[in-house]
Nucleic acid binder design. Sequence first.
RNA 1: GCGGGCGUGGUGAAAUUGGUAAACACAAGGGACUUAAAAUCCCUCGGCUUCGGCCUUGCCGGUUCAAGUCCGGCCGCCCGCACCA
Length: 855
Amino acid sequence: MAQRYNFRETELKWQSVWDDDGTFTAEADPAKPKYYVLEMFPYPSGRIHMGHLRCYTLGDVVARYKRSQGFNVMHPMGWDAFGLPAENAAMEKNVHPAEWTYQNIATMRDQLRAMGLSIDWSRELATCDPDYYRHEQAIFIDFLEKDLVYRQDGWVNWDPVDHTVLANEQVIDGKGWRSGAPIERRRLAQWFCRITAYSDELLEALGELDRWPQKVRAMQENWIGRSEGAYINFAFTGSRPDSLRVYTTRPDTIFGASFCAIAADHPLAEEIATGNDAAADFIEECRQLGTSEEAIQTADKRGFDTGLRVKHPFIAGRELPVYIANFVLMGYGTGAIFGCPAHDQRDLDFARAYDLPVLPVVVPQDADPASFEVGAEAFTGDGALANSEFLDGLDVEAAKREIISRLEDMDQGEGALNYRLRDWLVSRQRYWGCPIPVIHCETCGAVPVRKDDLPVVLPDDIDFESPGSPLDRHPTWKHVPCPSCGADATRDTDTFDTFMDSSWYFARFCSPDAEVPVARKDVDYWLPVDQYIGGIEHAILHLLYSRFFMRAMRDTGHLDLAEPFAGLFTQGMVNHATYRDEGGEWLEPQSVMQDENGAVVRIDNKAPVTVGRIEKMSKSKKNTIDPTDVIRDYGADTARWFILSDSPPDRDMEWTDSGVQGAFRFLNRVARLVTKNLDGLVPAGHEGFEDDTASSDLRRDVHKAIADVTADLERFQYNRAVARLYEMTNAVATALKSDACGPASRREALETLVRLLSPMMPHLAEEMWQSLGHTSHLCDVSWPVADQALLVDESVTYAIQVNGKLRGTVDLPAGTGKDETEAAARQVPNVADSIGDQEIRKVIVVPDKLVNFVV
RNA sequence: GCGGGCGUGGUGAAAUUGGUAAACACAAGGGACUUAAAAUCCCUCGGCUUCGGCCUUGCCGGUUCAAGUCCGGCCGCCCGCACCA
C-alpha cells in the first residue's frame, strides 16, 4: 500500500534547500520589475499566535505568487522589539529586558521558519539593536533641525499604571491603550512630532490610495477631522484690552449668538479661578467629570458665569455673557465658542438650562420666517437667513462667505481651516525604548547630540526595583557635558514612543546594512511597499505615523516618497469557540471532548461543559491554539491551507479542529493522486498533447482552473482559490481514474495542479514537482498561463425561463444562432407546459446563456 | 449623533458584478472495504411535494424581460469616531 506523505521530513528538507540556496535573498536590480511584500512585523512577545500565522501566510502567498510571475520580490522580516512588556518581564521575572527580548526573538524566528515562509532573512532587523536605533536618532536630529519636532510644555495624557505619557491616538475612551487605566492630565515638557504640518497633505493623499480599504481611509479622514469655519474675536466690555477668540463652523449664525463659553482648561478660566473660589471649584468639578462615553452622554450642560461680558461684533450695544462650560474642550479650536442655541443642540441645551435667548436665524425652506420657532431640537439644516440684518435671505453657504469677508474687513476674525489632528507626543518615561538624543544644558537649552556621538546607547546596568523612569534614576548615565558649551549638562532621560521605531523600518529593510538611515538607490528601487498586510487595529496609529514619517524624511532629504504603502490589506481575526466548566471557569479547547451522545464534556472527569460564544483567541478566555502544535501534528502546509480555506481573508474566521483535519486529508489526497499516477506519463518536458475527446476535456478543465485560480489570487480571494483547487482536484482525480486520457494530458493535469497549489502549500508542491521528474525547483518555475483557446466550451447549457423563472435547461453547441436557440428552447417539455396556451409577447435570447419567454 | 460594513442552508461560505441561488468545504446520516478500528472510496444532505414540479437570499415597496446583486423605506447586527463648536 502507498506510504502516507511524510510531511515532517519533507517540510524540513525543502526549508533547508531554500535556505542553503539563498532562494529568497533579494537584490535590487533596476532591470527587473520589483515587488515589495511586507507584513506588519511582530512584537517579540514570546511565541507566535494564530494572528501571526494568518498574516504571514497571506503575505507568503502574495510573495510566492508574485515571484512566480517574474517579479523581483523582496519579502523581509524583523522585530518590533522595544516596548513595555519587556520591562514588565524584567520586574516580574528578574530578567534583563534585552535578554528577554532576544530570547523571544530566537524562539519566534524558529517558529516562523517552520511555516516555510519565503523570507529574505539576510535583511532581518530588530528595533532594539543600536545599529537600528542610531539611525532613528539621526533622523530625529534632522527633523529637529527642520522644525519637524519640537519640545513643549503643556497638558499631556498620563497613564498612571504604565508611568508614562501617551499620544492622543493611544488614549481610547479616556483610557490607556495598553493598561486600560483612566488617563490623568499632567503638565510636562515633552517632545512632539509636528504631524499637523502635514494635516492637509495627509488628508488629500488618502484619495489616491486606491488599493487601501475604504474603511481605513475613512477612519484616517475622521481622525484628521478637517473642518471649515472662522475665528472670531469678541472684544470684552469695560477696560479689558484683549479679546476672546473663538472658533466656529457656523459664522453665519452670529446674529443668533446669545453667549460665549470657554473650556475649564482655558487660560482665561485659570486666570478667573485665582481669587475666585466658586470658579475654581467649578473648574475642578469639570476636571473630575469622567471622560467615558457614558459620562459624556448623561452629563448635563453646566456652566459658570464669569461675570465677564463681550461685545457682539455686528450689533451695537449687544453684550454676551461669558461662561466656563463643561462641554467646551480645550483641545479643539481655541477652547472657546460662541453659542447660537437655535442651531446647535449643545448650545440649545445650555441655553434652556440657563434661560438664555433662543433666536432662530436660519429658517427651513418651507417655513414662515415670522412664526418659525425652535423647540426641543436645534435646527441644523440649510435654509434662508433671517433676523440677521444684511444676511437676511441668503442661504447658509452664501451667508458664511459674506460674514467672513465682513469680519476680515473689520479685522475681527478670519476664515479658517481647522483640524482635529494634534501633534504626536513621542516622549515616554520608560527604559526599553530608543533614547532621545538630546542634552539639556542650563545655558544652551535643549541641544541635539552630535551625530558623530551616535548612537546614544541604553545603559545595561539598570534597576527596576523602584517606580518611575529607570534612566532618570541611573547614577551616571545622564551626566554629560553640553555639546555646545561644554558645561555640565544632562541627557534627556525619556525614550521614544515605539511607534517611532515602526514608522520607518520598512524603509530600513531596503538597505539594512547602510551607514546612513536609508541608502538612496535602494529605497528608490524598492519603495513603496507594494503590498502591506496587517491588522485593522493599526488603521490610525501605525499607518498614520508612517505616512507622516515618509513625508518628514522626504523633507529632510532622506528619500523622495510620500506614501509608504501603495497597497494595504487588513486581515480578519482568528476566532475560536469558548468553553466553561460548571463553576464558570474557562477551559482550554484541548481539555474538552464530545462524548458518545455528542455532548461536550471535560476529558478528565466527563463533567458537562458550556460551549460559549466564538470569540477572538485570547489568553484570558483560554481559547487559544498554538500554531506550533498544529505544525507539529499536521505540518505547515496543512496549517497554511486551512487558514486560507474557509473565510475571506479580510473577514474573521473560526479555527476548528475538524477544519484542520479536512485540510490534512486534502493534502494527503493530493500526494496520493500524484504518486499513484506517476506511471505511464510522458517524460517531464514533453511537448504536444493528445486531441482525443477525453484528453481535450481534461485539458479544458485544467486550463479553466488556471484562469480561475489566477484571477482569485490577484484579487486576494484565497478562499475561492482554495475551493476552485478542490474542484480541480476532484475533476483530475475522476479523469485519471479511467484510462481514456493520454499520457501528455495526464502529466499536464498533475503538474498544473501542483503548480497552482504551490503558493499555498509550498513544501508538498516542491516534493510532488520532484516526484514528477523535475530537477528544477518549483519556486523558480514561472506561473502557468491558461490557453485561451481551451477556455471556450464546445457546448453550453442554456437556462430557459418563462417570465424570468427557470423552467428548464437545454445543451446546445456554443455559438448557436438566436432562432435556432429559441426553437430548441420551445421544445423543452416543462417550458411548453408553463407557457400553456398563453401568448408569447416577447422572447429574450442572451447568447450562450439563457432564453426568457415573456407571456 | 457622524462615518464604514454586513444580513444567503445545521455551519464556514460561493454566485464570472443584473442572467440556472446554495459551487467548495465542515458537520450529520447511510453504504462499501476490514475479524475490528483507523485510513480510503461511494451515496444523501434548504423547504414543501400528489415525485410532474413548486417555493426559497432579514422585512416592505420600486426599476427591469430578468434582482441575492440596482434604487427608496424599514428592522437587526458588527466596527471606528464623538459634547470637535
